[in-house]
Design a protein around this nucleic acid. Structure first.
Lengths: 189, 189
DNA sequence: CTCCAAACGCAAAGAATTTGCTTTTAGCGC
DNA sequence: GCGCTAAAAGCAAATTCTTTGCGTTTGGAG
């Protein structure tokens, strides 16, 4: 589906990356995020710290890398029979995953890294999933909101509240979905 | 207006905090963000590093502290004659400030810190400013959207795009404002 | 099979962080 | 005013993390 960014699979480089990623995930699960250091991860992964420093530069970059990978959706949105139902189900699950403690931390890790590549990829993941739902809706001949409208009207508030305020409850997520549909349906009429 | 959180003004503690904040701001303006370290800030501020370590713990916390302070609005939203005009003007300025390089960095600094206190305060700043606009509109007897509606419908997309995608242009900000007004006006009719 | 470039390990040097102890300072009761 | 006290800062040693030079290993290409 998407092309890998790293080195060819199977090489030494790929093995090291995999074991470092796994070590980081394990340590994050086992101890407080503030206690995790590069030397620790290196020891857990069975490599020397300098290897990690040379590849990732600093802890934030590595953790961001790990977080982006964990944030990648591992399945297609469930089908409920209608585009609106699909979107609601997917958005509710998205909101729940993201507002969990671990989800919140992953978002922060992604945002804390240097460039904008990580956040963009995460945005791309959401866009992709919504595109799948939109495609199915279109195939059924339904009216369905523009993807950017959904990003602004549903995803943005969910993430904004998680990051800056307090996570939205499921019923508020439902209202957001209702909102983007109300606008598009009114426009279609 | 709001009570200070720090120690009493005028004490030694307050002087140290002020000089450290100023030193951090100066250094951030003068050099790359990745080059700024606690020992550097300490030297610039004329204190020992251990003072900073004891008070803030780590660089992120200090920078978040500085960023939150810089993000605090320093004036009331300008008056344009209508609530909608006020909101549009304020939102456009907000979007511009936040999407500038320095604004983006400050947001990231705030989000990178440990607790949720910093982000909440930033959200509170926006809420406060919007409340001022809403109050003026109400005094004129206008229909005006709920503050949370504006947070979700205008602020959230602005920040979401800055953080995860690409900053919105001014005309898109205008669309967002139009959107929340369309909904509330339709409801009022 | 041999060579090459990329990536890793090792270890020393350099920088940041932590910590115990001492000294300073601002506020408080007398 | 005058000490007294608790909080905060300075200092310096110990620890931990980060950077870097150099030799070695490894996987792939010719």
């Amino acid at each position: 589906m998407a092309e890998r960014e790293g080195p060819r699979p199977g090489g030494r480089s790929a093995r090291v990356q995999a074991s470092v990623h796994r070590a980081a995930r394990d340590l994050l699960a086992r101890m407080d995020r503030a206690e995790v250091t590069i030397p620790l991860i290196a020891a857990e992964a069975g490599v020397t710290p300098s290897t990690i420093y040379r590849r990732w530069g600093e802890l934030n970059e590595l953790l961001a890398d790990v977080a982006v990978e964990r944030l990648r959706p591992d399945m297609e949105p469930v089908e409920t029979g209608s585009g609106r139902g699909d979107l609601l189900a997917w958005a509710e699950q998205y909101a729940e995953e993201m507002s969990s403690g671990i989800g919140r931390e992953m978002i922060r890790d992604v945002l804390a890294a240097e460039g904008a590549a990580g956040p963009r990829r995460c945005c791309g993941y959401a866009r992709q999933q919504i595109a799948v739902i939109a495609g199915r809706a279109e195939a059924r001949g339904e009216v369905f909101p523009d993807i950017d409208t959904i990003l602004d009207g549903v995803i943005a508030p969910i993430l904004f509240r998680i990051l800056f305020d307090e996570a939205l409850g499921l019923e508020r997520v439902g209202s957001l979905v209702a909102g983007v549909f109300a606008t598009v349906e009114r426009r279609a009429a």
